[in-house]
Computed example of a mutant assay.
Amino acid sequence: MDSFCGVQISTVLWTYPVMSNADRVVLALGGAGTVGSGVVKALLDKGFRVAVISRDNSRLEKLKGFVSPSTRDNLTTLVGNVGSEEGAEAAKQDLVKTVGKVTDVVSSLGFSWWQGGPPHTQTLKELHWVIETLLFSTFVSWKVFFPLVRDDPNCTYTFITGGAGEKLLMPGTGFLTVGAASTLAFCQVLREEYPEVPCKLNQVKINTGVAPPERMAPGYLNHLDLGEAVATLVERKCTTHTVFPVNCPADLKTVVLEGNL
């Protein structure tokens, strides 16, 4: 992979300017959530400019209070709905008008937890809501924002997905597994449908819980540590079409320290 990265860098030097972190603008989809906020903070601390879109302005204000005061000026927040085609397109226009060229996208869309009972007690409306939240929003936002970075080898698009798509977390959460599995399948489709796209297209698959420090449980990932790992992947932009599985906190240290990202 090192030789592959060397070839990529050589090509970039001929056709695209090499950018510092300060020149890069990362769109963090889902950046106001638990996972996303850790990623946003880490990106800002590394010197990136970061943009976050959310339907809930109060969550954006909370995010501003969470990030380091010294980096807050590099955070742009926009109110918008990336879950609908019309809303995502409008948000893209506002985004480009506000920050200019977007160089990287990190997508961690979804919800923190859902438990509504066994499938026979649920309605079709509930299943539709889970699929809409996990799959439809991921598809719509990718379709709208991927063209911003698709053709530049200096750019990246990173999906953060969950392992719930491959196992039932606990009785009563089956619809979450269905929705998460749909997202995993969608990411696989993208890797195979776009094998030679210049943009670095990667996936970080979290096979455990993620929480802020005050709500940590045994085996859970600290969202700040996860954010640091994802920010490192974006920063290095050396790998593409790769899935990085994270099963426990030790995995994050391994992939960062050994340079596996």
Rank of each mutant, 00 (worst) to 15 (best):
L224A: 11
F159V: 05
K143A: 14
G116I: 08
V105L: 01
T173W: 09
T77A: 04
V178A: 00
P195W: 04
V7G: 13
G38K: 01
Y220K: 10
S70C: 11
G65V: 00
F4M: 13
T208K: 04
N222C: 12
T76K: 12
A164M: 03
E166P: 01
E192N: 15
F244C: 12
Q203C: 12
E126M: 10
G179S: 06
V40G: 09
K143F: 07
T121C: 12
T15D: 10
T138C: 08
V140A: 00
D151I: 01
S137Y: 00
E132C: 03
A91V: 04
V67D: 07
S37P: 09
P147D: 09
T11R: 12
S108I: 07
D225M: 03
R55I: 08
L184C: 04
E166S: 14
K62R: 14
K64F: 11
L134F: 05
L190A: 06
G227M: 08
A164Y: 04
D2C: 12
A180F: 02
G163K: 05
V96F: 09
Y220F: 15
T133S: 06
K253C: 10
E193P: 14
P17I: 11
E89K: 14
N260Y: 09
T158M: 06
L233M: 12
T138E: 06
G165L: 01
W113S: 12
T98D: 02
R49A: 14
G31M: 02
V197T: 11
